[in-house]
Amino acid sequence: MSQHRINKKWYVLLIAVFIVSACSAKEEATSESTPVATTESTSTTTATPEAKPEPTPEPPAEPEKQKQPEIKPYESLSDLDTFIIEFNKTSNEYGFSINKDNVEVSRGEEVLSFRYVFNDKVGIMGTIHKNDLTLRDVGVIGKPAETENEVIERLNITRSLITATNPQLSADEIDQVLLDAGLSKEISKDNSLTGSTVRNGVQYDLSFSEKNGFLLFARIAKN
């Protein structure tokens, strides 16, 4: 919508103001043109004392604003099962989800690694600490998008990942994470792209190129 187009709500208010102003002006003109009949009176009038103005009541005190709870930085990411549950809460709204039975897990010397493929172009991968089974890192991996639908698909998967690793963020704050990390709907047209941002102790690192596709990983930020 053009910025110069007047909002319908303000348009109605402006019309109402003009109508009221016109009516007021018409009434004033009528009162000035109409002579007022006066009659002489021989009776004396008694002066009345002036009424004292009533004291102006004090405005009510504003209610105290409730303090927002302090959000402490996360010390670790959730375990894999919790991540999948939180991820699916958001991804279900977009029409896809992670099937736990199809998650591939492999064991390394120090960490466990996992991978889940949504289709032949995009998936999720990460590593898990062996000592407490919490996520060490988790990210979205995808080949370069060739259509607008593929771009939207990657954005929705990325939004779901951010929600799962930072449940306290609102939808607007999640989109701001994407902007701060450098991700946009025009990613398929960029030659290369890197970025990083931190929310509540979770760091999001973005890497993208037309040749290698894109990666967006979440991990606990280093102090």
Rank of each mutant, 00 (worst) to 15 (best):
K67D: 12
P69H: 11
P69L: 14
P69Q: 12
E70P: 04
E70Y: 13
I71D: 08
K72R: 09
K72F: 11
P73E: 04
P73N: 12
Y74T: 08
L77Q: 01
L77F: 08
S78E: 07
D79Q: 07
D79A: 08
D81L: 14
D81P: 01
T82A: 06
N88K: 07
K89F: 15
K89Y: 14
T90D: 11
T90Y: 14
T90S: 06
N92W: 07
E93C: 10
E93T: 15
G95E: 04
F96W: 14
S97C: 01
S97H: 10
S97T: 07
I98S: 01
N99I: 14
K100P: 11
D101T: 09
D101F: 13
N102C: 14
N102F: 13
V103C: 01
E104R: 10
V105M: 09
S106P: 02
E110L: 15
L112A: 14
L112P: 00
S113F: 12
F114Y: 03
F114P: 04
R115W: 11
Y116W: 03
V117D: 11
V117E: 09
N119E: 06
V122S: 04
G123A: 05
M125I: 10
T127L: 03
I128D: 02
K130S: 14
K130Q: 11
N131D: 13
N131Q: 11
D132N: 14
D132F: 01
T134W: 02
T134Q: 08
D137G: 04
D137A: 07
V138Y: 00
V138P: 00
G139A: 10
G139F: 10
G139Y: 04
K143E: 03
K143V: 12
P144K: 06
P144I: 08
A145L: 00
A145T: 06
E146C: 05
